[in-house]
Each structure stands twice: as structure tokens, then as C-alpha cells.
């Protein structure tokens, strides 16, 4: 564990709390992509199968359980109590392409050919692309409320911190490298590029998230 990874994990945790608070406060899921939330649930379900296979640390186990439970809860909220506020026509990105792409890359380049390893690779590639429906919806409508942009910023920030973590691990842990995590992580962070720019130039200056 290092400070970058811990900060990244905590920011990831914060992003989920921000989203749940937003859903509870506004009693609406307008502006939030259900498809992105479904993808995160699928990401955690396929990656954290290893909860049953091995033990890393209490921290690791508790975080995994939290991510699984919270993503299930968010999907439940959007699917059931808040369903009336969900506008399907705005959430129109075809996620089939993302899932198929992640599956093909996972099958082509896993660390090892076993069910758990291929699913792990799938979850890493899927996570790197899972934000696309959310960003797509924000681009389509051209705006987002502030708390939604804080949510997306926290998610992007978590990934940026993980990249610093990998640099740190490379130098401190005998050239540690996990190329799948690295490639997917770089792609994932890059996807947030435009968003970060608008967030910093507008939202942090007290304006709303609006595309020019």
C-alpha cells in the first residue's frame, strides 16, 4: 500500500458516496447513466470473484464487499424507486460494443488462460470503458448538475492516482508492472481528459458544467 493507492481508493469510495447522496437528495437519477452503473456492477462482479478464492487483507476484502454492495444498491435505486426519473432516450450509448470489445481483448490478452484470469482481464478492460455512456450522455445533453460532475471527477481522479501508484510501485517493488492494469488505466484516465478540462475551467470556478 502507498499513499497514491490509498488516496485513489478513498476517492473511489468518495465518488460512490457522492453519487448515492445525489440520488437520495434529489430523489432523481436524471443525468446519471444507468448503463454506466450496470457496467460497474458487472466490473465488480467479474473481478471480485476472487473474494472466494484468496485473501489479501481485511482492507481489501471490506473494500471489495463495499464496491459490490454499493454498485448493486445504485442499480437497484435507479431501476426501482427512481425509475420514473430515468430518461432512457438520453442514455443511448450502445454498451454492447463496450462489453464485446472488453471480452475480445480479455480473451486475446489475459495473463493466463483460466476462467478467473480471463474474467479479471475482462473486468479491467470493461472498467476502463465503463464511464463512456455517462460521458456520452453529458456530451449529448451538454450539461450536468454540479454534484454529478463532482462524482465523475472523483472517479477520474481515482484512476489518475492509480497511475501514480503504478509509477511508485515500479520503482519501489522491483520493477513491478502489470501491463493489463497499466494499459487499461491509461486509456481510462485519457477518456476523462476533456471532462477534467471543463471541470477545472468551469465547475471549480463556481459555474455549472456546460459544454461550449
Amino acid at each position: 500500500m502507498n499513499i497514491f493507492r490509498l488516496s485513489g481508493d478513498l476517492l473511489h469510495l468518495a465518488s460512490i458516496f457522492i453519487l448515492i447522496a445525489r440520488l437520495h437528495q434529489t430523489k432523481s437519477c436524471a443525468g446519471i447513466s444507468l448503463k454506466t452503473q450496470y457496467l460497474y456492477l458487472l466490473v465488480f462482479a467479474t473481478r471480485y470473484l476472487d473474494l472466494f478464492l484468496g485473501f489479501v487483507s481485511v482492507y481489501n476484502t471490506l473494500m471489495k464487499i463495499f464496491f459490490l454492495a454499493s454498485s448493486g444498491y445504485i442499480v437497484y435505486l435507479m431501476y426501482s424507486p427512481l425509475k420514473a426519473s430515468y430518461d432512457k432516450s438520453l442514455d443511448s450509448f450502445r454498451v454492447e460494443y463496450i462489453i464485446a470489445f472488453a471480452a475480445v481483448v480479455a480473451l486475446a490478452f489475459p495473463h493466463k488462460y483460466s476462467v478467473v484470469e480471463v474474467l479479471w482481464s475482462f473486468s479491467i478492460y470493461l472498467e476502463s470503458l465503463a464511464i463512456i455512456p455517462q460521458l456520452f450522455q453529458m456530451t449529448r445533453t451538454g450539461e450536468a448538475d454540479n454534484i454529478t460532475s463532482h462524482y465523475v471527477f472523483a472517479l477520474g481522479g481515482y484512476r489518475a492516482l492509480y497511475m501514480l501508484n503504478w509509477f511508485y510501485r515500479y520503482y519501489t517493488e522491483d520493477n513491478y508492472v502489470d501491463y493489463i492494469s497499466w494499459i487499461a488505466g491509461i486509456v481510462q484516465t485519457a477518456l476523462y481528459g476533456d471532462f477534467f478540462y471543463i471541470y477545472i475551467t468551469r465547475v471549480l470556478k463556481g459555474k455549472s458544467f456546460k459544454l461550449p
Binding site: 471489495k64 492509480y162 501508484n165 508492472v177
Partner: peptide, 10 residues
């Protein structure tokens, strides 16, 4: 260390 089984990150 077997990199493939070292998934210690979240």
C-alpha cells in the same frame, strides 16, 4: 512472484 495471481489492487 507470479504476476497473474498478484491481484492485490482493487
Amino acid at each position: 512472484m507470479d504476476r497473474a495471481s498478484a491481484h492485490d489492487e482493487l
